[in-house]
C-alpha cells in the first residue's frame, strides 16, 4: 500500500466517524460510537496495522497523520459527551422540579415577651454607656421602700404609691428605688455609681387598660462628685436617641418625687406622630416616658454619701408603657394575659 491510498482511507474514516458522532443522541450510544470508531477493533485500528507495509520514509508520516485523526476524534468525542451530559442533566433536573411555594419543614417558633424585649433593649443602651445592672428583692421593708427615700411614715406623698403590705413593716416594693439605697450601701462610699435596676413592682391599682397592680420598672442611678442636672438631661437624651431614633429630643418638666430634688418628668417626641400632634400625645407632640431628678440630699446622706461632697441623679421608667408605645398595644392587660395569638406577633422583635 502506498501512503496516499492509506491517507485517503483514513480521511474517509474520519469523516464517517465525525458524521456519525453528530448523530449520536445519548450517552449510551456515545459509548457504542467510541467502541466502533476508536476501539481496538475499529476500522482505524485495523488501518494502523497496515502501517507496516509502508516505506520506512512514509511510516512516521502516516503515524503522525494517524495521531492527528485520533486526536481530532478524541476532542470531538469529549465535546459531544459534555454536550450530551448537559442535555441529559437538564432533562433530569426538569423532572425533579418541586413546588417551591409549599411551606418548609416546620421548625417551632418562639418569642421573647414584649416587656422583656423592651427591658433588654433599654439594658443594652445603658450597658453601652458603662452602667451595670443590679436587681433586688420584691418584698421590701417599709424602711427601704419609703423611709430611706425621704418618705417617713404618714407622709402625704405615700398616697402617690398605694401599697400592698404583708405586715406592718414588710411590703411589696412600689418602685425599684429602694435599690438606690441598697446600691449606695453596698458601694460603701465608693464612686462612681452607675447602675440600672430592672424589676417588678406592685401598687394597689385596679387593673384596667392603662393600670396594673403589678408592672415593671427600670431605675437608674448615677452618683459621683459633681454630677449635674445637665448630665441627667444629656444621658437621657442619649438614651432616647438610642431607643427611639436619632431625631429624638427630651423635654424636662418640673415635678415632684420625695427622693429627688429638683425633680422632673421627662417627655420625648411622640413616637407616633414625630411631634406633629396626634391622639396618642393628646395633640402635644410629646409623650411622658419617665420621672427623674437629682438625688435628694437627705437620701444621699442617709445612704452614706455626704451630700456636700457628692451628687447624683436618678430616673425611673416603665417598660410596659414603652412597649405599649413602641408596639401599639392599647391595653396593658394583654401583656399579662399571655395569649399565644398575641405573643406570636413578637417573633420578629
Amino acid at each position: 500500500m502506498d501512503f496516499e491510498a492509506l491517507d485517503v482511507e483514513l480521511n474517509g474514516l474520519r469523516e464517517t466517524a465525525l458524521k456519525r458522532l453528530g448523530e449520536v443522541g445519548d450517552t449510551r450510544s456515545l459509548a457504542d460510537w467510541r467502541v466502533e470508531y476508536m476501539g481496538k477493533k475499529s476500522a482505524i485500528s485495523t488501518l494502523s496495522k497496515q502501517m507496516g507495509s509502508l516505506s520506512a520514509e512514509d511510516r512516521p508520516k502516516f503515524g503522525q497523520r494517524m495521531n492527528e485523526v485520533r486526536q481530532a476524534l478524541e476532542t470531538a468525542f469529549a465535546a459531544r459527551q459534555a454536550e450530551l451530559e448537559r442535555i441529559e442533566q437538564a432533562k433530569r433536573l426538569a423532572a425533579e422540579t418541586i413546588d417551591v411555594t409549599l411551606p418548609g419543614r416546620r421548625v417551632p417558633m418562639g418569642a421573647i415577651h414584649p416587656i422583656s424585649r423592651v427591658i433588654r433593649d433599654i439594658e443594652e443602651v445603658f450597658l453601652g454607656m458603662g452602667f451595670s445592672i443590679v436587681d433586688g428583692p420584691e418584698v421590701e421593708t417599709d424602711h427601704y421602700n419609703f423611709e430611706l427615700l425621704n418618705l417617713p411614715k404618714d407622709h402625704p406623698a405615700r398616697d402617690m404609691q398605694d401599697t400592698f403590705y404583708l405586715t406592718e413593716e414588710l411590703l411589696l416594693r412600689t418602685h425599684t428605688s429602694p435599690m438606690q439605697v441598697r446600691t449606695m450601701e453596698r458601694m460603701r462610699g465608693e464612686v462612681p455609681i452607675k447602675v440600672i435596676v430592672p424589676g417588678r413592682v406592685y401598687r394597689r391599682d385596679e387593673d384596667d387598660a392603662t393600670h396594673s397592680h403589678a408592672f415593671t420598672q427600670i431605675e437608674g442611678l448615677v452618683v459621683d462628685r459633681g454630677v449635674r442636672m445637665s448630665d441627667l438631661k444629656g444621658t437621657l437624651e442619649t438614651f432616647a436617641k438610642a431607643l427611639f431614633g436619632p431625631n429624638q429630643q427630651v423635654r424636662l418638666r418640673p415635678s415632684y418625687f420625695p427622693f429627688t430634688e429638683p425633680s422632673t418628668e421627662v417627655d420625648v417626641i411622640c413616637v407616633h406622630c414625630q411631634g406633629d400632634g396626634c391622639r396618642v400625645c393628646k395633640g402635644t407632640g410629646w409623650i411622658e416616658i419617665l420621672g427623674a431628678g437629682m438625688v435628694h440630699p437627705r437620701v444621699l446622706d442617709m445612704s452614706g454619701y455626704d451630700s456636700q461632697v457628692y451628687s447624683g441623679f436618678a430616673f425611673g421608667m416603665g417598660p410596659e408603657r414603652i412597649a405599649m408605645l413602641k408596639y401599639g398595644i392599647s391595653d396593658i392587660r394583654l401583656m399579662y394575659q399571655n395569649d399565644l395569638r398575641f405573643l406570636s406577633q413578637f417573633t420578629g422583635v
Binding site: V107, P108, M109, G110, A111, I112, H113, I115, S116, E138, L172, R200, Y202, H213, A214, M335, Y336, N338, L340, L343, S344
Partner: peptide
C-alpha cells in the same frame, strides 16, 4: 427552640 416567654402575676 420554639418556646414563648410569658410573664404572669406573682
Amino acid at each position: 427552640i420554639g418556646l414563648y416567654e410569658v410573664r404572669s402575676y406573682a
